[in-house]
Amino acid sequence: MSAHGPLLVHHLGVFVTDFAAAEEFWTAALAPLGIVPGYRADGLAEYWHDGHDTPSLALQHVTDPAAETRGLHLAFAARTHTQVDAFHRAALAHGGADRYAPRHWEEYRAYCAFVSDPVGNNVEALVKEERG
């Protein structure tokens, strides 16, 4: 159990054929959310909140295109609208493509931004909001 309660996910792996492009995108996009590379090795980068190695995202190089992660939708919690905005800008500046610019989504009761990573995975940053 974590300090915030039970974890739903301990870690997630994303497998990529172009490790350099993926590492550039993920490092830049996650930085505004306080998610940093915590461990690096040849063809491997693990991301987590500074000082907390769980939950984590592992980016791993694969040579077989059929093994590459595609079709994933992964959403990251942000603390502020400013973090969501910065995530969106950083992702677009480092190989990502716009899906939806930051805005309030009434149906999700959240402020969200959506981008595609370099291979088309749907990556989101959001702040949940309570609205009456």
Results as ranks from 00 to 15, higher is better:
85 D>R: 12
8 L>Q: 13
8 L>I: 07
130 E>Q: 12
87 F>H: 03
37 P>A: 01
58 A>G: 13
62 V>R: 00
96 G>F: 03
15 F>H: 14
88 H>R: 07
34 G>N: 05
75 A>D: 10
56 S>G: 15
116 S>L: 12
80 T>E: 04
56 S>D: 08
28 A>C: 11
124 E>S: 02
11 H>G: 06
7 L>K: 13
49 H>V: 12
107 E>T: 14
121 N>H: 07
132 G>M: 03
117 D>M: 09
100 Y>K: 13
8 L>D: 11
64 D>Y: 08
26 W>A: 00
62 V>W: 00
108 Y>H: 14
39 Y>G: 05
128 K>A: 08
107 E>D: 12
5 G>F: 10
105 W>C: 08
44 L>N: 00
126 L>N: 02
35 I>P: 09
60 Q>A: 04
54 T>P: 01
14 V>Q: 10
78 A>S: 11
68 E>K: 09
6 P>C: 02
95 G>M: 04
119 V>D: 03
69 T>D: 05
132 G>P: 15
58 A>V: 13
41 A>N: 01
10 H>V: 12
20 A>D: 13
55 P>C: 09
76 F>M: 06
46 E>Q: 14
87 F>G: 02
24 E>R: 15
63 T>V: 03
36 V>T: 14
10 H>C: 02
79 R>V: 12
97 A>V: 11
118 P>Q: 01
61 H>Q: 10
31 A>Y: 02
99 R>F: 09
85 D>L: 03
20 A>T: 12
80 T>R: 09
127 V>G: 00
114 F>A: 04
39 Y>I: 03
24 E>M: 09
2 S>R: 11
32 P>M: 02
7 L>E: 14
55 P>M: 02
9 V>T: 15
82 T>H: 13
49 H>S: 04
63 T>Q: 03
54 T>I: 10
97 A>Q: 15
44 L>G: 00
99 R>I: 14
97 A>W: 03
2 S>G: 14
46 E>Y: 06
58 A>C: 13
12 L>A: 10
121 N>K: 06
111 Y>F: 11
103 R>S: 15
49 H>K: 09
39 Y>D: 07
38 G>L: 05
52 H>R: 10
128 K>S: 10
94 H>A: 06
82 T>Y: 01
6 P>G: 11
119 V>Y: 02
26 W>K: 00
12 L>V: 12
28 A>V: 11
11 H>A: 04
50 D>I: 05
111 Y>N: 05
131 R>M: 05
13 G>N: 12
55 P>W: 02
122 N>R: 13
80 T>I: 07
11 H>F: 06
8 L>W: 03
86 A>L: 03
30 L>Q: 05
75 A>H: 11
18 D>K: 00
83 Q>F: 06
118 P>G: 02
105 W>Q: 12
52 H>D: 13
76 F>K: 05
69 T>G: 08
46 E>N: 09
116 S>G: 13
2 S>W: 04
124 E>Q: 06
17 T>G: 10
104 H>A: 08
37 P>R: 00
65 P>M: 02
57 L>T: 05
90 A>K: 07
97 A>D: 07
71 G>I: 04
120 G>T: 03
102 P>L: 05
34 G>F: 01
21 A>D: 11
121 N>W: 05
121 N>Y: 06
96 G>T: 07
